[in-house]
Simulated assay, not measured.
Amino acid sequence: MGSMGAVWGGDELDLDAYLERIGWEGGELRADLATLRAVHRAHTGAITFESLDVLFGRPVGLDVKEVEGKLVHGRRGGYCYEQNTLLAAALERIGFEVSGRGARNRSRGGSLTAVTHAVLVVTVEGEPWLCDAGFGWQGPREPVPLARPGAEVRQGEWVFRVREEADGVLVLCVPREGAWRDLYAFSPQPYHPVDYVVLNHYSSSHPRSAFVGRVVVQRQGDSERLALVGRELSRLLPDGRTERREVPAGELLALLGREFGLRLSERDAAELLRMYRAED
């Protein structure tokens, strides 16, 4: 544990339950790069990105036990603050040095956006790595090195690159249609769990938040990435092509289970269908 103690609530986490939830297949847990990579990959493969509680108008709690109850024991998904709070707690419990950062989303165009995305920087043997289980379908499956800006990082069929701008700002990029596109940018300023409480309040309740008033469910796969936003299902392929189609209400729940591994309670399923049909 770092000198500041359990900053991310790692001492409160049921680590065994978390490891079962992400499908951990054994092996000794050490604060090394191999473990970091394996835990990150398992987490992003097992826990769906979704913000349905925001759609339902429910508060999104970031206390570690609340996040564990929902994402681990309840087998739900979550969005960036929940996902990276859980990942940070697990990594801290294992013994990693974990720090937060606040990022500006650049994936929606060129206009300047507020800092609304939470990411992690984990230091292993003196080298910083970007860890992010909460950027949905476009995010990395594994840690991305930050000490070598400009180098291409291949994760299976997907490629990432970090470039450096003025004032130490780092930008995560992906190739799309023959050019590198920015996903998000973050400064060196450390963020703490209390900072994410403020960002989470905006993202879960402000009328201009991208998550308020619409379905957002996303999944990272090895051969394709999926996003259901509103009524549109997008399928992103490694070559940058995106296939899109509308999902009728009658197909919604089966699709969430089949494609996103998301099974809702009867109450949540009924509420989601009611709201989904209201968009007709």
Rank of each mutant, 00 (worst) to 15 (best):
S107P: 05
N105K: 12
A227Q: 12
L13I: 02
L15F: 08
D32Q: 08
D53C: 04
V198M: 07
E271M: 12
A42R: 13
H206G: 09
E243W: 14
A185I: 13
V247P: 02
L120G: 05
E152N: 05
P207M: 06
R37I: 05
V119S: 13
A38F: 07
S51T: 09
D167W: 14
V144R: 06
A42C: 07
G10R: 05
M275S: 13
V72A: 04
Y79G: 02
H201S: 13
A31T: 01
D53T: 11
R241A: 15
G257F: 01
R21W: 02
H73N: 04
L112C: 07
I94W: 10
D268M: 03
V247A: 04
L199K: 12
A147P: 06
I22E: 08
A46T: 03
A278D: 11
A249H: 11
L120E: 07
E68L: 04
V215F: 02
S205I: 02
E177V: 09
E266S: 15
V122C: 10
T35K: 00
A6V: 07
W24K: 10
R263A: 04
E157V: 10
G257T: 05
I22V: 13
A34L: 14
A88K: 13
P143V: 12
E246V: 11
G77Y: 02
R30P: 05
G10Q: 07
A31Y: 03
M275C: 03
Y79W: 14
L52D: 01
L252M: 02
L120A: 07
S107Q: 11
E251F: 00
A179L: 08
N200Q: 14
E97F: 14
Q220E: 14
G213P: 07
E259M: 04
S204Y: 08
V39C: 03
R241V: 09
L55V: 04
A133M: 11
P248Q: 08
